[in-house]
Amino acid sequence: MIGVIFGVIVPYIAVAIFVVGVVYRIVNWANSPVPLKIPTTGGQQKSLPFIKRTVYDHFDSPYTWWETAGRMLLEIFLFRSLLKNTRYYLDRVSQKDARWLWLFGILFHYSLLLVLIRHSRFFLDPVPSFVEQLSDIESFKGVFIPSVYISGLAIVVALFLLWFRRIFLSRERTLSLPSDHFALILLLAITISGNLMRYFFKADLFAVKELLMSLMSFNISHAVEVAETIEPIFYVHFALASFLLAYFPFSKLMHAGGVLFSPTRNMPNDNRARRHVNPWDPGDVPLLAKGITVAGRTYKSKKLDWDTYYEMYKDQLQEIEEADYKIVPEEL
């Protein structure tokens, strides 16, 4: 019974929620209008030819499409903004670096990446050779028996470090919501159960692969059959992972997709070369002059166009006309 519920039904539901949820969120973001081009510039703009820009400026204040793409890649693969992190000390002007968050973050995400890549051997047949090679490299093949995968352990360590930040640093403790702890605990549970399964309570990995392959080919009767044969420890891991998938679209974990959409990062700093058009405001007449409607009432501001202005301050403007639009020091 456990096998059918957690080996077949739950994963299907979880994947469905995950896919629909993530697609919905992404499409929703992608379809939201971007009214303004507002990159946060972190370096020298492209300007007059003799104003030199460093390599960093090209990425921190990108002007071309390529530079912007570079900025995004640096954010995604190197967490560049976090790398700039500093801490403020009330008692001194000098700064001490505080890039622990960056280090822990990188450790966690790259371990996660490696773990996910290694997991692909359960979904792919034949297993791509680079997956095998990667696994061999990180386990220092042959040194330990059975092989010890560094990423699998590193991810647990990194998660604990990230969690300790939230528990022991006062600012971070104040900021952390239950959902922040929850995400870390959930990931810890998944990774710890995975490691336990690997090193202590062995599960039949061939059966697992067969289960996943038949789930993927919608061979449900075979999946049910195999599912019943697998050890319960596997279902602890598998159920938690399913839960993570289902939880993903509703949580802050969506940052994985969101980071690509951030208008302060993914737009070039080329406002002066190319006009950005606001989809909901053509910019012909100020919106306030058209009037804004709130709770059924329209509030309209009078537009101060030149003619109105001229009418209002005619005397003074005519004096300026009489002076032929020129200001000279008054004769004393």
């Binding site: 969120r25 929703n28 973001w29 939201s32 209008p33 971007v34 009214p35 507002i38 903004s81 976090l82 992190n85 801490r87 403020y88 968050l101 973050g105 930040r165 640093l169 600012r171 971070e172 900021l175 952390s176 919501l177 922040d180 802050k252 969506m254 940052h255 969101g258 980071v259 959409f261 951030s262 208008p263 302060t264 909901w280």
Partner: peptide, 21 residues
């Protein structure tokens, strides 16, 4: 609905605290 950055910023903050100080 009118503003991607606003919507996105509501959704994706992980409360990492990098901005705090």
């Amino acid at each position: 609905e009118k503003n991607r950055s606003f919507k996105l910023f509501m959704d994706i903050c992980v409360r990492c605290g990098a901005c705090a100080d």
